[in-house]
Design a protein around this nucleic acid. Structure first.
Lengths: 135, 135
DNA sequence: TTTGAATCAGACCAAAATAGTCCTATTACA
DNA sequence: TGTAATAGGACTATTTTGGTCTGATTCAAA
């Protein structure tokens, strides 16, 4: 519980890898996979997610690969987590599309509002931590 | 990911229930189960965990039940979560018994130290939120 | 002293979420 | 045109979670 998924872990590691590659140029999924000991297929998927979220850019074909789309200081840990995870809320009824009606405990559940506040504080931690603090 | 377990949710609800029962006296697992629409066996287990963690006291036999062992202001959300969950760390290698050697990525994983700091901040959120803020 | 209401405790099962694999298509450079 | 790379979907295996079942123990009241 309250654990980061492997996808999120791998995304952080991959982001760090690309950020550390100071010289511009692409990092390939294979390269990151081997350096970080992450299954190739997984890190490839994670990188694709990062591209979709505009955190990274990709180049196909020979000499292609991935590189960060922004300066690391402008990428938050939250950005990285969100790029690979849609459900990162403490409880389901805090998901964007959810409403009180989705609460299986109906009005007997009186802990939703306090949890919103806790969720907000946790979001703040992830949003205010930048990729540069991971380097 | 980063989700509270049902056990933790139920523990919070049960703690709130007992705290709200202003008149002293015991709340039974059955009573909490029905009021909060939580499966009886589950809430019973959760309450037992709370007793083990000295958050609640129990009385067996007829007219028995559970009640909080402390003033709600002296119980943190962290206390409640910890009473039902042992693994609440962002990543496994931050568990108390873990060490760097447990990291399957060995020294290629360079995100452990930054995660310790993030973990610390999240712990702080849960530790500084008291049960009274849930009421 | 018996009965019933309650906690206590462990094994067990089912379902869901997570982690990982496989296969194929597409793109672009040499 | 061959090869190195991303893109992406389907699939499988594993782990975690949520929940159930069974039975033992304790205690108060009838």
């Amino acid at each position: 519980m309250l654990k980061l998924s492997k996808k999120a872990e791998y995304a952080l590691m991959a982001a760090k890898f690309m950020a550390m590659k100071n010289s511009s140029g692409y990092s390939t999924a294979k390269e990151i996979s081997e350096s970080c000991m992450i299954p190739y297929q997984l890190v490839a998927k994670v990188l694709q997610n990062m591209v979709k979220s505009n955190l990274a850019i990709s180049a196909k074909g020979t000499n292609g690969g991935f590189s960060l789309a922004k300066n690391p200081i402008d990428i938050s840990v939250m950005d990285i987590i969100k790029s690979v995870e849609s459900n990162y809320k403490l409880v389901d009824c805090l998901q964007p599309k959810s409403s009180l009606e989705d609460c299986s405990h109906l009005d007997c559940c009186k802990i939703r509002d306090p949890l919103i506040e806790i969720q907000r504080k946790i979001d703040k931690v992830f949003s205010e931590t930048s990729l540069v603090q991971i380097l």
